[in-house]
Nucleic acid binder design. Structure first.
Lengths: 254, 254
DNA sequence: CAATGATAACCTGTCGAACAGGTCTGACAA
DNA sequence: TTGTCAGACCTGTTCGACAGGTTATCATTG
């Protein structure tokens, strides 16, 4: 029985994977933080005595996961957690029909509902103020029918709510899910809503923000839940997918 | 004004990033599915007239995201969605204190609670049977105090529940969150529960499975929620982190 | 002395050629 | 028909080289 058996999963076949693992261990050992610089490629080459190509591949791996920020000329730095890598993963899952848009919406829904509850309980005064301000912007945008600014306000409010939940996984996951879903939908159709629908959406945001600012977690959750009901209906109208997919899966699920 | 301005975001500075994007577009255009083969490195080299190093880096990027499966000698194949990349991302966020273990637990909780509700409603007969079988295994493991088999059954039940929700995002996210959290905790301490706690955990799973099999979504959710209450208490005892982190964040949140 | 600008060191991005070793296919032989 | 073997194909890795960007040092200059 070999000695390495203690770490069976980590017997990476490829050298570059080992280098990537080494870098992760280095980050953990030195307790590096986002913004700190990582060793340069040449340094790792000398330390581990491997070719630069290998090291570069390891760095690309970590860069793809959003761990390292690599720019020409600069030394690699640890990156702040961001949704880009996640949205690419979700986007691939959508693209290959491994998950459906309604699956994404379902998960977004439960996360957003929890997020507004947490936001209602934990948001700071400044965060509540920023929410109220953005809500006014949204109302203004509706009055002059400025659609780009409307969707911008929509996004801003959802992001503020997710941040106000004080669980960083909420902005991370929600941004990733939203981005991947929008990318998928925009390719299929341009969403042009009627003015009536727009007003309903703005009102929905209004009541959510109002209740979060009032600290009423339960009602805020209900409002967000209603908001998602509308979105779900709108989407299932556009692509009669929800029911079909669900029942097909049920049949396949042995 | 340059012509490329129409797609400003896609002006990737590096060549290898452009190659990666090209591959993703190719996947979308040809509607490739998991298991299908992707072009070999040499093919892309000729088609795009770039060096093999560049192409390899692009492939590593997609492999890191869990999109491509690359093995020596074999042609690259599209991969089935899996939690590995996600758990690495979450693991990095935990490692660098960008999210706390209680954040992960909070998100896991809401996702698992929703998952059991969906499972109670949508699970197939076969899935309910498998759940019941695994539950019996867990009871047997408890009687003979086989801890490894106990944790294996725990994992299996949670995985079955997530799958039975018929939303593939649930097994994906829950596996990733669980794996990253366990990786983080195991490094800090070996969790040795008392027999009394073990019995309580098994009972909690028992009531969850029972209610899911009975199709009682509401009670299943309550049972899962209770199960997580216990876990949360156990964890906050081990690392008095929950409250401290929360209040610290609140102060920082301007 | 301080501000400024040039230079040198360092870093990443890309290319090319080369070899090792694994995988797959198809032809040939038993 | 089946088994085996060779060759084509593919990924893993290395070395060397050059372009172009960034940073820090240092000397020049006001």
């Amino acid at each position: 029985m070999p000695l390495f058996e203690s770490i069976p999963l980590f017997a990476s076949p490829t050298l570059s994977a080992q280098v990537a693992r080494h870098l992760l261990e280095l980050i953990a050992r030195d307790k590096l933080r986002p913004g700190d610089v990582a060793p340069s490629e040449a340094q790792i080459c000398r330390e581990l005595d491997v070719s630069r190509g290998c090291v570069r591949e390891a760095y690309r791996t970590l860069a793809a996961l959003g761990i390292l920020a690599i720019e020409s000329g600069r030394r690699p730095r640890l990156q702040t957690m961001n949704a880009h890598a996640l949205s690419q993963i979700f986007g691939y899952a959508l693209e290959t029909s491994q998950v459906s848009p309604s699956d994404v919406l379902e998960t977004r829904r439960v996360l957003e509902v929890q997020a507004v509850q947490l936001a209602a309980r934990h948001a700071s005064k400044a965060q509540r103020q920023r929410l109220a301000v953005e809500m006014r912007h949204m109302h203004n945008a509706l009055e002059v029918l400025d659609r780009p600014r409307l969707v911008a306000s929509d996004l801003a409010i959802h992001t503020l709510l997710a941040e106000a939940s004080l669980n960083p996984l909420n902005p991370l996951l929600l941004n990733a899910l939203r981005a991947s879903l929008e990318h998928q939908m925009n390719l299929n159709m341009g969403t042009r809503r009627s003015v009536k629908d727009l007003r309903r959406i703005v009102d929905a945001h209004g009541s959510i923000v109002e209740r979060v600012c009032a600290g009423d977690a339960a009602r805020a959750a209900v409002a967000m839940s209603r908001h998602f009901d509308l979105s779900a209906v709108a989407m299932s109208e556009l692509m009669s997918d929800t029911k079909a997919t669900r029942s097909r899966r049920r049949a396949v699920a042995k």
